[in-house]
Amino acid sequence: MSDSNNSRPAISGQVASWLGVIAFVAVAIAVIAYAYLAFRSHDGVDADRRVAQKALRADLESKAKGKLTDSGRNADGTYHIPVDAAVALIAAKPEILAKLRQPSTNGGEAPPAPVFTNGNK
């Protein structure tokens, strides 16, 4: 049958082939796993961008808050501020826009929502 095998150092030969197959499988796994991890690391870039955006927003918000001064306060409790400051404020806290659209229920006292005083609604 396979007597030809006996002339060779058979054990090491078989085990060597076995190790070769394992190496092939390992390389295959490594290639696919590397592809996944490389694609996944884009999430990291995205997370960095989110962190940067968050910092920017906090910065804008603190600046915009500084613009709500008593000298700009209307009689009904709302504020009038320059348009570019209002834009910055909305950019920092988009949910203000939603509050703006709701009719104010308690005399406009509680939320200090910025209202434009230059005729725009």
Binding site: A35, F39, R40, H42, P94, A98
Partner: peptide, 24 residues
């Protein structure tokens, strides 16, 4: 793997929470 999972990862891997309407 590339056609299903990597391209799926490109499309689904970046999803964030989103408001139902702007500002919500």
């Amino acid at each position: 793997f590339g056609g299903l999972l990597l391209s799926g990862q490109v499309q689904l891997g970046q999803l964030n929470r989103a408001p139902a309407e702007e500002g919500g």
